[in-house]
């Protein structure tokens, strides 16, 4: 049983590594804002865990549409790679990425590998190389909220309404910041008969080890019209969650790539139910 729980802890850690999305931090903040001018994002380094399937280990974001990945190669048979995703948009609105590509990686053992490929658009061809660090150690020794170890998944319900959020890092990983994100209801209603309510996310920076209160605000969307003429013209679309979601985003510097990455922890609190 002891061996079992130890192994399980490792398995859970791996599952959580994917679930908590250890991802490279993009130029944007927690709350997805459109950047004024986007720059091509082509990583030169990537970090993965051993024998953990990562379908988006390498993420490429380009300003121009129509790019494809060709001649994808790995420097070793111990690192398998695959072009798992591509999109292309010729929409003229917005200044977002028009080509997005992803390369999945799977390492059979620890090592430092080279992944090479060509970015191709029509007759244009550029060779790219990414150094992939496949290592077993994770950034966190322990992450807790109200004393509960967040590495063990049991549904995501919060153990208490408030508590201390604390992240203890492993050697070589540096904690950069912790943000707490909650729902904020935005009421853009015109009048009682013409209502519009939506929910945004809002993040604030918190200190490691700080005592925080979980949010009571559940996601809500409402669009309603009540006619003074005839009920035939009435309409109502309403969505409201039973739980309020508080998310903690821990940003840290990876030991190997020296790039910023983050892990997200979600805590749910039951706030809406029929009396």
């Amino acid at each position: 049983m002891k061996k079992m729980s130890k192994i399980l802890a490792r398995v859970m850690a791996a599952v959580m590594a994917i679930a908590f999305v250890f991802t490279a931090v993009p130029a944007f903040s927690f709350d997805a804002k459109a950047a004024e001018t986007v720059q091509d994002e082509i990583p030169t380094k990537a970090r993965i865990y051993v024998r953990v399937i990562n379908n988006y280990a390498i993420k490429i974001n380009l300003r121009e549409s129509g790019y494809k990945i060709k001649n994808l190669k790995s420097s070793s048979s111990n690192l398998k790679v695959f072009n798992t995703y591509e999109n292309s948009s010729t929409n003229t609105y917005g200044d977002s990425y028009k080509s997005q590509l992803e390369i999945g990686c799977y390492a059979r053992q620890e090592g430092v590998y080279k992944v090479s490929f060509n970015l191709v658009k029509g007759s244009k061809k550029t060779k790219k190389t990414v150094i992939v660090y496949a290592k077993n150690d994770g950034p966190f020794k322990k992450v807790t909220f109200a004393g509960k170890n967040l590495d063990v998944y049991d549904g995501g319900m919060a153990p208490a309404d408030s508590g201390v959020f604390k992240a203890v890092m492993n050697k070589g990983y540096r904690l950069k910041k912790i943000e707490m994100e909650v729902n904020v209801i935005k009421d853009d209603s015109y009048s009682e008969s013409s209502k519009y309510i939506n929910t945004n996310r809002s993040a604030t920076v918190i200190k490691n080890g700080a005592k925080v209160n979980l949010s009571n605000v559940a996601y809500k969307y409402l669009s309603s019209y009540t006619s003074s003429y005839s009920s035939e013209y009435n309409s109502l679309t309403e969505e409201e969650d039973m739980v309020a979601l508080t998310q903690f985003r821990v940003t840290y510097v990876d030991k190997y790539t020296k790039q910023e990455m983050y892990a997200t922890y979600s805590m749910y609190k039951l706030v809406n139910f029929a009396k």
């Binding site: 399937i53 379908n55 798992t84 995703y85 591509e86 999109n87 292309s88 929409n91 999945g104 799977y106």
Partner: peptide, 12 residues
């Protein structure tokens, strides 16, 4: 579509 396309396929 005429202006947007995407393809996803996992490794496993």
């Amino acid at each position: 579509s005429s202006t947007y396309s995407y393809r996803r396929e996992n490794m496993e």
